Amino acid sequence: KKKIKIYIENENGEKKTIEIEVEGDIDEIAKELAKKYNVKIVKIEP
């Protein structure tokens, strides 16, 4: 498992940072999160 930080922006332009532990393809997981929460991924840090 890797701990990563995902910087997101919602439709109101509010920026947030999510810190999660992931296993597998980080890009795939980030895309799923973006779709699920309707946010834009700004940056992903390993």
Rank of each mutant, 00 (worst) to 15 (best):
K5Q: 05
K2A: 10
K3N: 07
E14F: 11
E9H: 05
N10F: 15
K31E: 09
I6R: 00
A34T: 06
A30N: 02
Y7L: 09
I8W: 14
D27I: 10
L33D: 00
A30I: 15
N12T: 09
E28D: 11
D27C: 15
K15M: 15
T17Q: 05
I20C: 07
I4L: 08
E28N: 07
Y7R: 04
E19V: 10
E9V: 13
I41D: 02
V22S: 06
A34Q: 08
I29Q: 05
Y7V: 12
E11W: 13
E28H: 10
T17D: 03
I4S: 01
I29W: 13
E11R: 08
E11Y: 11
A30Q: 04
Y7Q: 06
I6S: 00
K1G: 08
I20A: 03
E28R: 11
N12R: 13
T17F: 09
G24M: 03
E45Y: 06
K2I: 14
V39W: 15
N10I: 07
A34I: 08
I4T: 04
E28S: 08
K16M: 15
K31Q: 11
K2D: 06
D25N: 11
Y37C: 05
I26V: 12
K5F: 11
E9W: 04
N38I: 01
K36M: 08
V39Q: 03
E19T: 11
K3E: 02
K31I: 08
I29K: 03
K36G: 01
K2H: 12
K35F: 08
K31T: 10
T17K: 04
I29C: 09
I18A: 01
E21C: 14
Y37I: 01
A30F: 11
P46S: 14
E32G: 07
K15W: 08
N38R: 05
I20E: 02
P46K: 06
K3G: 06
K16G: 14
K16R: 14
K36P: 00
I26D: 03
I4F: 15
I6T: 00
V42G: 03
I44G: 01
N10E: 10
A30R: 05
K1I: 13
N10V: 07
A30G: 04
K40P: 02
I41R: 00
D27Y: 14
I20K: 01
I20F: 08
K35M: 10
N38W: 03
I26Y: 10
K36F: 08
K36L: 10
